[in-house]
Simulated assay, not measured.
Amino acid sequence: MKLKTVSLTAALAGHSHAALRFGCSTLSVQRLDPLVQPGSVPSAHVHQIVGGNAFNATMNPAIDIGETADCTTCFFAEDFSNYWTALLYFRHRNGTYKRVPQYPNAVGHDGQVGGMTIYYTQESFTSNAQKVTAFRPGFRMTVGNAATTIKNGTQQQFGLRYTCLQDVLTRWPESPDFPAQPCPGGIMAIHHFPACWDGKNLDSPDHQSHMYNTAKAGFQTAGPCPASHPVRVPQLAYETMWNTTEFNDPDLWPEDGSQPFVWSTGDDIGYTTHGDYVFGWKGDSLQRAMDSDCFFRACGHNKGGPLKMQGADGQNRCKVQSTVVENIGTNEWLAELPGKAMKK
C-alpha cells in the first residue's frame, strides 16, 4: 500500500479556535527520569528531553519551573515545560547498538536541532464545544508504559503510534508496532496524552490516574469527559522524527528479516513507547493562547498572537549539563544499551 502524504496546511484548514504546534530543540539526552524515578542518578534507561533548563533529577513539584527556568529550547519563549521520551536505537545484525538521530519536523521548524514537535489543541481542530483549561504549576503526567510487553495495552491507546515515513510530510498509516521494513524518510513516533483532568490532583502515584483518555486515532474529535474527570485540558501531543535512513542498508538488518529498532528500554517491538510531561508555561501564557483564536506559529507576537517567540539560535543555545556522563552511542557502536535496560 502506498503511504498517504498529507499537507499539514491543507489537512488542518478550517480551524475555528486556538491550536499550538511548535518545535523544541534537544535540551539533553541522558539517563534521568524525574517522574518515574525521581532522584535516581542514573535512571534505568536513556531519555531525550526538550524544553526549559530547570530540568533535573528530582523536579520538585512545589517549584514552579515556569518561574525558575531562564531559557527553553521551544519556539514559544514562555514555555519552560519539559517533555521527554525514550531514545531510539538501531541494533546491528552483529548485536551492537547505535543511537538513531532526530531531525526537525515539516513546516515551521527551520534551524531546530533534533528535538520534537509539540501540540496543544482544543478537543479537535474544528470543534470548540467545551472550554479548555490550561494546566497549573506543578502539573505532571505520563502516557504509555515503559515496562509493558502486552500489545493489547498499546493498541487500546490510540495516541501511541508509529508512522513509516516516505518523506517528512507522511502522516498515514499509523501502527502500534515498529515498522517492519526500512522507511525512506525515517520513523515518526506519536504520543497523544489524555485531555480530561479530575480538576483536583496535579499528579497521581502512577502519573496517569488523575487523567482520563477519550482520544481517538489521530487528531479526531475526542469523546466527552466523564464526571470523574470533568475538566477539559489542552490535548497535548508529541511527534518525534527519527532519522533511520543511515540504517536502511539491508546488510545491517537481521538476517531473519526481523526489524532492528529498539527503544532505550530494550523493547524491540514498540509497545513500551511512552512520554512524560511537566508543565512549566510562565504565568497565564498558555491559558491566554487557549482563549484566543490563534493557530500554530501565528500564536506568536509577530503574527498578532498572544505569545512571545524566539529564533532557532535561542532554542539551540539552551542546554542543561548532563548529570549522567556515559557513552550513549551517538558516534560509535555499543556492545549493550546504557543501563543494560531490559536486557534479554
Results as ranks from 00 to 15, higher is better:
M1A: 09
L8Q: 12
T9E: 08
T9W: 01
L20Q: 04
L20F: 04
R21L: 07
F22V: 05
T26Y: 09
V41R: 04
P42T: 05
V46W: 02
H47M: 10
G51M: 05
G52Y: 11
T58W: 13
D64P: 08
I65K: 02
A69I: 08
T72R: 04
C74N: 01
F76C: 02
E78L: 13
F80D: 08
W84D: 01
W84F: 14
T85S: 13
L88S: 06
K98S: 11
G111K: 00
T117K: 09
I118F: 00
Y120N: 12
Q130Y: 03
K131N: 12
V132Y: 10
F135G: 03
P137R: 02
G138R: 07
F139H: 07
I150L: 13
Q155K: 08
Q156V: 12
G159N: 10
R161A: 15
Y162T: 10
C164P: 08
T170C: 09
D177C: 02
F178N: 15
P179V: 04
Q181N: 11
P182A: 09
P184V: 00
P184Q: 01
G185D: 06
G185K: 09
I187P: 12
M188R: 15
H191R: 11
P194W: 07
W197E: 01
W197Q: 05
S209Y: 01
Y212F: 12
Y212C: 01
T214I: 06
K216M: 12
K216R: 12
T221D: 11
T221A: 13
A227P: 14
R232H: 11
A237H: 12
M241S: 14
L252W: 00
W253E: 00
W253R: 00
P260G: 06
W263K: 08
G283P: 14
S285C: 07
R288L: 15
R288E: 14
A289I: 15
D293N: 08
D293R: 06
R297S: 15
A298R: 03
C299R: 03
H301N: 14
G305P: 04
M309P: 02
M309C: 12
D313F: 06
D313G: 10
D313K: 08
Q315T: 07
S322W: 00
V325W: 01
N327L: 00
T330V: 06
N331E: 14
A335T: 09
M342H: 12
